[in-house]
Design a protein around this nucleic acid. Structure first.
Length: 501
DNA sequence: ACCCTAGTTGTCTAG
DNA sequence: ACTAGACAACTAGGG
């Protein structure tokens, strides 16, 4: 007896049912051809080495939510363990797969993997459908529109996409017919793994401020979209990096995992903006989505986008190496309370405000520690719930003045910057509790506090809280000179290249 | 080739 | 609370 054929939808960074064209495609195909439908997710065996614990928790929660939403459609999520390139050849045979749907991704590791999968599928006669649904625009067609070169300014990017229409978002409500479900539909073999099963002590993790999942994403989106006045007056630079509760939406982790469709978000914003006057890109909420598109396009069109060497858009800067300083930065013990508070919030909660990212990124690179942005990007990859390959590399290059942004002499002060929105240092007191009792006068510069005050506040600088690693006022000026020299060399190289042509 | 303009979000001081 | 200028002078894109 020949087995019934199967349609597989491979969930990756599209952990949702709304606005998921690729999944709808699979569902329709299974129904029309009377094939079996298996929505799958692959968990790599070394996942715990690749993803930080907070993000792993977010992912597992997202998978659980996806599974329960699929169950409402009379289906389920089939979670499989192993590497895609090893799992698929077996699946193709075992399940008689005829049709595989998935979304298009940009991360070169995934792109490379997809090429292998595509080849394997071809050999086994599996038809693959890939849909652009993680971004608003098909980045490759934008690049083509710009004669194959990457626009290096946001405004240029906006002009390229200005007349592209965004299609409607879709809702999937149709239930999967019983005959499309395989016999092992209820098997525990395919359950979403728990954190404990992955070797993570769940109660060793901090409070979960941002639970993963499509349900949570849409709930969060709707809360913010209900505040129409807030949406329409939103200007990113005017939001606070150090408020105790986030001053922005924190939808980014949901976008990066695909729990929220960027297109769904975009269309909501558009319909609100149609009703009243509103702020504009780059500072508006819609402008934030456009930044995401901008970096996706840059990432897709640039070789070695996540590295300095061999990256054509990245200025080559002779960064130093200092593992002690790097570690202190990552662990929130630079001796600059604002920087340390941010890094500790990042590690504990997995999310920090965009401007807080500016502060610590500038501090690590061109501002103070003179350490490569690649090192910072790796730490962010570990800690951020909203880690996103293209955005992470792009923003790190921006902040280190390696690409997209060039005014390297504008340096964030670890003392002055935070004071603008938090004079009392309430944010520092929360995340660096050893300084909780410091007088406001010294909360941003505790090393200036007289010994008697340090004793009264119960925190001796150099013992209970570190002495500052560097003297910002002095070192940032030296670093500006180094940047200037690096730019000069870069310029000479460029003009030499032009002459050679 | 050259010049001009604009660029998501700096800091500090003086008024 | 705000605005303007000094600081020292960046690059990409467009004309």
């Amino acid at each position: 007896m020949s087995k019934v054929c199967t349609v597989v939808h491979w969930f990756r960074l599209d952990l949702r049912l709304h606005d998921n064209y690729a999944f709808r495609n699979a569902l329709n195909e299974a129904e029309n051809r009377q094939y079996l439908l298996r929505p799958i997710y692959l968990v790599d065996d070394d996942i715990t080495r690749k993803i930080g614990v907070n993000r792993l928790r977010f992912l597992i929660q997202s998978l659980q939510d996806l599974n329960s939403n699929l169950k409402k459609l009379n289906s389920r999520l089939f979670v499989l363990r192993g590497k895609a390139t090893e799992v698929f050849p077996k699946l193709f045979d075992d399940w008689q797969v005829k049709y595989l749907t998935m979304q298009v991704d940009i991360d070169p590791v995934l792109v490379e993997q997809d090429e292998v999968i595509e080849k394997l599928a071809e050999e086994k006669d599996v038809f693959i459908v890939r849909r652009v649904q993680h971004t608003l625009y098909d980045v490759h067609s934008i690049l083509k529109k710009n004669n194959g070169s990457v626009p290096l300014t946001y405004q240029k990017f906006l002009s390229l996409v200005s007349n592209i229409q965004i299609k409607d978002s879709i809702e999937i409500t149709k239930k999967v017919p019983d005959q499309c479900n395989p016999v092992d539909i209820a098997s525990n073999e395919y359950n979403v793994p728990t954190l404990n099963e992955l070797g993570i002590e769940e109660n060793s993790l901090g409070v979960c401020k941002y639970p993963g999942g499509e349900t949570e994403a849409l709930k969060r989106l709707n809360i913010y979209m209900a505040k129409k006045q807030w949406v329409c007056t939103f200007e990113k630079p005017k939001t606070s990096p150090n408020s105790i509760e986030p001053s922005t939406t924190v939808l980014s982790p949901y976008l990066s995992h695909g729990c929220l469709s960027s297109k769904h978000f975009y269309l909501k914003l558009k319909s609100i903006e149609n009703e009243m006057s509103h702020s504009q890109p780059p500072v508006s909420l819609l402008g934030q989505l456009m930044w995401r598109e901008f970096y996706y396009m840059a990432g897709a069109g640039t070789e070695n986008f996540d590295k300095m060497v061999g990256n054509p858009v990245c200025t080559q800067i002779p960064w130093g190496k200092n593992d002690e300083h790097l570690k202190a930065w990552a662990e929130g013990r630079t001796g600059y309370p604002f920087v340390d508070a941010i890094m500790r919030q990042l590690k504990e909660e997995g999310w920090i405000h965009h401007l807080a990212r500016h502060m610590v990124a500038c501090f690590l690179t061109r501002g103070d520690l003179w350490i490569s942005w690649e090192e910072g990007a790796k730490i962010f990859e570990d800690f951020l719930l909203d880690y996103d390959w293209a955005l992470n590399a792009g923003n790190w290059m921006w902040l280190s003045a390696s690409a997209f942004f060039y005014k390297y002499f504008r340096v964030y002060s670890p003392v002055a910057f935070g004071k603008k929105t938090d004079k009392e240092g309430l944010y520092i007191r929360k995340y660096v509790p050893e300084l909780k009792k410091y007088p406001t006068e010294f909360i941003y510069e505790p090393w200036k506090a007289p010994k008697t005050i340090q004793i009264t506040a119960g925190c001796i600088i150099g013992e209970d809280y570190p002495y500052r690693l560097v003297d910002h006022d002095k070192i940032h000026k030296e670093n500006i000179k180094k940047m200037s020299a690096a730019y000069k060399v870069n310029k000479e190289k460029k003009s030499l290249k032009r002459k050679l042509k």
